[in-house]
């Protein structure tokens, strides 16, 4: 772990540049008014878009709240559904497994536009269209493949040996999952969770169709701004988007660490 390649500083530099430069450009755009080519920096600045972000008409608080609640809920539900599915795909062998594994990926390949209208019609008939629950359910479609895929690999790497060991030592299936499997897959769940959150937060079309405009998330605000060329406003909301995603990923990592190092849950304090 601690070995250092002579390229390490170079790699770090490249990494930071690739990661931070776009964010920096985004931040500049958020205060730029006019940025003529080929100037290195904008010709005029204004904080107007940041000010309007915190004005009443931006609906910052309800949008943030809805976005986080929705994406957070989708993340938790997806993880809850992915764990048993991934465990089966990762550890069991059964006839038709490769077919199931391929079908699981199908929603990633098929664009939402092809199934959103049909889903809307179905949800209308079920009476869950234009509702939070409906959007939550719809987001599971593009999210589950990622959750299942990542966690399948996590389970494959983990194997079933440790869970068997726990059972043999006297743990019930639930105890074995709680005390052995869960802490060990927690880091994998955290990275999957971060991705799921971002996938859910990025859903525009599904949120649009199934929320009927009642569920307003960051993407719903952001996309019209981008489409209409409101560069500064789009940059402001994009920054917010990144900040929210990053914050959630950090929280997931921390939760995973706490879960994995079960010092406080086990008998020794």
């Amino acid at each position: 772990m601690k070995t250092r390649s002579p390229f390490a500083p170079l790699l770090l530099f490249a990494f930071l540049t690739l990661l931070l430069l776009p964010v920096l450009v985004l931040l500049i755009w958020s205060v730029a008014r006019s940025w003529p080519w080929p100037s290195l920096l904008p010709a005029a600045y204004s904080a107007a878009e940041w000010k309007s972000l915190f004005s009443a008409s931006s609906r910052l608080v309800p949008v943030l709240l809805q976005s986080v609640l929705l994406a957070g809920g989708v993340t938790l539900l997806s993880l809850a559904a992915s764990v048993p599915a991934a465990k089966a795909l990762g550890l069991l062998s059964f006839p038709g497994k490769s077919v199931v594994e391929m079908l699981v990926l199908a929603p990633v390949i098929v664009p939402p536009l092809s199934y959103a209208p049909g889903m809307h019609l179905l949800f209308l008939r079920l009476g869950i269209a234009d509702s939070f629950a409906g959007v939550l359910l719809a987001h599971l479609v593009p999210c589950l493949p990622y959750g299942i895929r990542i966690l399948t690999n996590v389970f494959r790497a983990l194997g079933d040996r440790l869970e068997m060991q726990a059972r043999v030592l006297g743990a019930s299936p639930a105890q074995a999952f709680l005390h052995v499997t869960l802490p060990l897959i927690a880091p994998g769940m955290a990275s999957a969770g971060g991705l799921l959150f971002i996938v859910s937060l990025s859903q525009y079309l599904l949120t649009f169709f199934l929320g009927g405009g009642r569920i307003v998330t960051l993407s719903m605000v952001l996309l019209p701004l981008v489409k209409d060329g409101e560069r500064a406003a789009a940059a402001v909301w994009s920054t917010l988007f990144i900040a929210v995603s990053l914050l959630f990923c950090l929280l997931m990592e921390r939760a995973a660490k706490r879960c994995a190092s079960s010092r406080d849950t086990f008998f020794l304090s």
């Binding site: 309007s52 004005s55 009443a56 008409s57 019209p224 701004l225 409101e230």
Partner: peptide
Amino acid sequence: GDPNVNAWLDT
């Protein structure tokens, strides 16, 4: 997509 229109309706 037009922040001015949105602001007028809201404010």
